[in-house]
């Protein structure tokens, strides 16, 4: 499975994801969309509700993980699916975003898999010549 904005890198037991973008904001957005793409067919999700997401962390990499963990929480605990993300504030320690989506309706939404957690293993956010790359391993 490879899309325009993320690819799966080999990891024996879990799921390695590499996301790329031309800005840090887009990297965070694309990583969030990658999570949604792994969980559900994005086209089946409507923009019915708006949820505010706010996360804090010690540095940019940890913030990246925290952001993705927050999305997992909303998907697997609050049972929300998102179709788009608008990041309204991003610095090295905090992120505010507006996510648009809807409550899971098990008759319409076929969930592809359970994602247990975003690990710290091989977690990386880097920039080379204006291209941003984020790598993370998901425990599945």
């Amino acid at each position: 499975m490879t899309s325009l904005f993320y690819k799966i890198f080999p990891h024996t037991s879990d799921l390695g994801i590499e996301v790329s973008a031309f800005s840090l904001i887009d990297l965070f957005k694309n990583a969030a969309m990658a999570i949604m793409d792994l969980v559900v067919e994005p086209a089946s999700v409507a923009k019915q509700d708006v949820i505010e997401l706010n996360v804090q962390a010690e540095n940019r990499e940890l913030l990246f993980r925290e952001w993705l963990s927050e999305i997992l929480y909303f998907v697997f605990v609050k049972e929300y699916l998102f179709q788009s993300f608008r990041i309204t504030k991003l610095d090295s320690h905090s992120l505010n975003a507006i996510a648009s989506g809807e409550k899971i309706d098990y008759r319409r939404h076929k969930l592809k898999r359970e994602l247990k957690s975003i690990t710290y293993h091989q977690l990386q956010v880097s920039e080379v010549d204006g291209k941003w790359t984020g790598r993370f391993v998901i425990d599945v």
């Binding site: 990891h11 024996t12 037991s13 879990d14 690990t119 710290y120 293993h121 091989q122 425990d139």
Partner: peptide, 9 residues
């Protein structure tokens, strides 16, 4: 044993 995260599985 196989590749896990942190500890090997």
């Amino acid at each position: 044993i196989h590749w896990g995260y942190g500890f090997p599985i």
